[in-house]
Design a binder for these strands. Sequence first.
DNA 1: AATGAATGAGTGTTCATTCAT
DNA 2: AATGAATGAACACTCATTCAT
Lengths: 216, 216, 216, 216
Amino acid sequence: MGGAKTKRMPRAVREQQMLDAAVRIFGQRGYMAASMDEIAELAGVSKPLVYLYLNSKEDLFTACIRREATALTRAVRAGVRTDLPADRQLWDGLLAFFAHTAEHPDAWSVLHLQARTHGEPFAAEVAAMRTEIVAFVTRLVVVAARAAHRDPDLPEHEVAGLAEALVGAAESLAAWANATPGVTARQATVTLMNFAWAGMGNLMRGNRWAPPADEV
Amino acid sequence: MGGAKTKRMPRAVREQQMLDAAVRIFGQRGYMAASMDEIAELAGVSKPLVYLYLNSKEDLFTACIRREATALTRAVRAGVRTDLPADRQLWDGLLAFFAHTAEHPDAWSVLHLQARTHGEPFAAEVAAMRTEIVAFVTRLVVVAARAAHRDPDLPEHEVAGLAEALVGAAESLAAWANATPGVTARQATVTLMNFAWAGMGNLMRGNRWAPPADEV
Amino acid sequence: MGGAKTKRMPRAVREQQMLDAAVRIFGQRGYMAASMDEIAELAGVSKPLVYLYLNSKEDLFTACIRREATALTRAVRAGVRTDLPADRQLWDGLLAFFAHTAEHPDAWSVLHLQARTHGEPFAAEVAAMRTEIVAFVTRLVVVAARAAHRDPDLPEHEVAGLAEALVGAAESLAAWANATPGVTARQATVTLMNFAWAGMGNLMRGNRWAPPADEV
Amino acid sequence: MGGAKTKRMPRAVREQQMLDAAVRIFGQRGYMAASMDEIAELAGVSKPLVYLYLNSKEDLFTACIRREATALTRAVRAGVRTDLPADRQLWDGLLAFFAHTAEHPDAWSVLHLQARTHGEPFAAEVAAMRTEIVAFVTRLVVVAARAAHRDPDLPEHEVAGLAEALVGAAESLAAWANATPGVTARQATVTLMNFAWAGMGNLMRGNRWAPPADEV
DNA sequence: AATGAATGAGTGTTCATTCAT
DNA sequence: AATGAATGAACACTCATTCAT
């Protein structure tokens, strides 16, 4: 009477357990190297139940991506107050971003590495989140430009490139901060903020770097 | 003349053909999803020959990484003249980098995505290349600081973070430029150069962004 | 009732079926020439099930050896009554041995030929059984010596050699009896019993054969 | 001028080198686990040459068996002088047998284990040698019986069984002597000689062990 | 007399997935 | 709500064997 393993739980709870296990395994082993057996075992259920609730490995992976993408954007949004100045918003967003990725390294691995590495069903999923973040950053850039009493006359794709570069830098720093002992989310934020804000400010003021003319 | 299947070629030539095929398949399918059968077929040889020359899937992948890492760093180095000013060096290096990655998208996928996603034998291989590039960039940053008549009093790990952010931004832009039609290597270079050089210059001049004090 | 392919049976039953098939294939083809495909087919299951239950070819082979070694020693022990005189015990043991090996030729091939031929994981397994049998025979020899009112003053390693020779002779006769039509277990027993008991009796009485002295 | 590797040697010499290598590899790895690559490498030649001279793995193995069987019987015959008494002949033959197998363990592994374990083309080859040796021993037994002024009224198949048992005991002791440190060929011979000669002598004199009558 | 280049056929092993209960 | 039993399809890797020189 009363086995060790807890049994018979509502579906929603079981599903979260499965996703927890899947994110961990996918994050550590990679999508392809992860086996459904291992995930089921870590989740403490039998394999058919995983299939019953989540259909297939692809669907399971997609569910992981979606859940973690939502969690990440939610965390960033929760860190930002839109009534504050643009630079402060950027600071707060970066801080939240670095903090969240540091606290959930497997989730970050799933979003940043695994999802992009394994082709189309998944890359699109994470691209959506990325687009949202890039849009957020772009908005800040434009706001900042207005605050500097300048209309951004940068070509549109350069604004896009700028945001892209900023997000890429952030992603790269997140990995670096996670891998380098002694680097905190705050320090990563300071580094990137200094780098980016100054650069963007300069751009907004029209100080551009002149490319050499003697190219082929 | 010109039969479909050329046969009986010296080992060195065959090996390059195999690596060509492997880079393409690994770059497109990913390391785990790539099958040795497919690689052999694309290379126009039988599977045993691939194993005879390259030993194992792991070794084959490592050989790909090494070849492409060497090719990339060589291309960047070839684009830079060390007797020119630091900003010009950075410009030239970025241009070479974006051009090379645009011309060899599968190789870039292998280096940027696949190698990092599949654990230690491979990640280390590409980390070596990255370290070299980050060191190159760091050198330029320091030179630029000296040129601005300032010793870089930034903490050492912040310099490292800076270079890391810059390289990350470059990597991210490379992927973006490859995926966005109409964005050339030159445009990517302009975008990043403006962003980065101004930001770094500001930093060198001691203009730092002040973090808010009211943190927890 | 009695369909061709019975399906869905409990694990323990399936495992025995697999071992049955494996002993047969291993015994007839040899360890290396045996293919897991063939074993699975003879067992009436798919290959993955064999791996699920028995892990690997090595483990499967080891399981065969263990099962058959146990069966053989059990059969011999069951044939012997330890309250009877030593010669009678030897007779009964040999009879049981020859009968069992004659009834299970594939098992005997696995134990006598295959296991010894294929290196350390397996040889050790069967050596354990052999040690037990040699010990049993050695005990009988010593008892017989006591019964002849003589302490066995033979050097210890000569007693060991004796038992070894006796067991070797038995093994050899088993193969011979199996291969020679018309030779029954009983006849093999008679032959060996006469040969061995007389020889040992002589030894026990101190009648030793004198080696020539003119050796180098 | 004078490469390191000796090249271009007459066929007969090369063949012996190949057989040397093959016996070693077959003896140590076993027939199936031995690879032609390894044999060719150990012989210091290319694989096609092995095939040119010895046709196939089967033929190569057969050639090994034949060469070593011949060598073993030759060694035993060379140790025996047919003008001496039967017991002395047996002693000398056993001594030569144990000495030869101890000096050529790989050859003995090929003959005793590998050839018998791998089915018909090979088992027959070694059976021929065995038959010859058994016949030799049988002859000695009969001679010994005559010397004891008795016609051997043992049933024919019992004489065969006797010789079989003796040879089996010898084979078993050879393996045991090789594997047990401190047991020399001479000691193995003493042990077996005492055991066998006494037993056979007894038999020849009509002293038989009486089987129990109460069998089923 | 001798070899570098090459392959068809097969091996053990694993995995995502389903069925019957 | 949950699982023990079972599999089709594929994969990395190896081997005996041959061809062209």
